[in-house]
């Protein structure tokens, strides 16, 4: 079984986000970038399936400028066998990215596509579902457990009301939630080895995909700031404030 995993290079989750003064975007100059945490979980899951002998090959794909090659090397250091960069401007819209990944999945004849449920920059939570729709594959989003058996994936999903388990026939798309696994760290020897693993570069034209979107950014602004609060000295003072000042407790 062949697994395709997508990875996105995003602002590191610990970085404090700043909006550009001209309100056109978030300022990414000299900011630490990392693999999107949900993509790390996707890579880890694929590697574990390979270690269990369920998968024979793990291919990793990223859509973006040259800098995303770094993220692809990280994925290979973690255990992916080879990588494909689809060269495009960073920050392409979800549907274009989905079309590109769907095409790669088709060309690779991947049995399973594992993707992060959302990227922590655009917070969209849509690309995996779109890939599934474009390929007419079944999907299991927000996965916290994946079991592959008899050409099916049994996937437990984190939903608002609790947990749901679906069985989907391969080929299929799975998107990861936080509790699917705890990603490993890359060892130094593996980081060295990853430098020699194959990394192909393709363009959207190579894949026959036209990219572009009808959505434009009007502005990006900082969120409204909360007015600073106070520290109370005791539980009694807290209760008094809640009853008589904030009036949220009667």
């Amino acid at each position: 079984m062949k697994i395709l995993v997508s990875v996105k290079r995003v602002i590191d989750y610990n970085v404090k986000v700043r909006v550009k003064p001209d309100q056109s975007a978030v300022d990414l100059t000299n900011v630490k970038m990392s693999m999107n945490p949900f993509c790390e979980i996707a890579v880890e899951e694929a590697i574990r399936l390979k270690e269990k002998g369920v998968a024979s090959e793990v291919v990793v794909v990223s859509v973006g400028s040259k800098s995303c090659q770094e993220t692809l090397r990280t994925a290979m250091a973690l255990g992916a066998d080879r990588a494909i960069q689809v060269e495009a401007e960073d920050g392409l819209d979800s549907l274009s990215v989905a079309k590109l990944i769907a095409k790669v999945a088709q060309e690779e004849a991947a049995d399973l596509v594992i993707m992060g449920k959302q990227a922590i920059d655009s917070d969209n939570n849509q690309t995996g579902q779109m890939v599934a729709a474009l390929l007419d594959y079944p999907q299991a989003t927000f996965a916290s457990e994946v079991v592959i058996e008899n050409g099916e994936a049994q996937v437990t999903r984190e939903i608002d009301g609790g947990l749901q388990t679906l069985a989907i026939t391969l080929p299929a798309v799975v998107t990861t939630d936080l509790r699917l696994n705890e990603p490993r760290f890359a060892s130094l020897p593996n980081i060295m080895k990853a430098k020699k693993k194959p990394l192909d570069v393709k363009t959207p034209a190579d894949l026959g995909v036209e990219v572009g979107s009808n959505v434009s950014i009007v502005s990006v602004t900082p969120p409204p700031q909360r007015a600073g609060g106070i520290k109370v000295g005791s539980v009694a003072e807290l209760v008094d404030k809640l009853k008589n000042e904030a009036k949220v407790v009667s």
Binding site: I11, K16, V17, V19, V26, D93, S94, L95, I120, D121, S122, D123, N124, N125, Q126, M130, S213, N214, V215, S216, I217, V218, S219, V220, T221, P222, P223
Partner: peptide, 30 residues
């Protein structure tokens, strides 16, 4: 396209949504 987590309707084609864990607010037109 699909716009996620809309928190405000500016007009029939312009919407407001949080990005970067709510650390930035984007107004987008489609």
């Amino acid at each position: 396209a699909q716009l996620s987590d809309v928190i405000k309707v500016e007009s029939a084609d312009t919407f407001v949504r949080p990005i970067y864990a709510g650390n930035a607010i984007a107004t987008v037109k489609t």
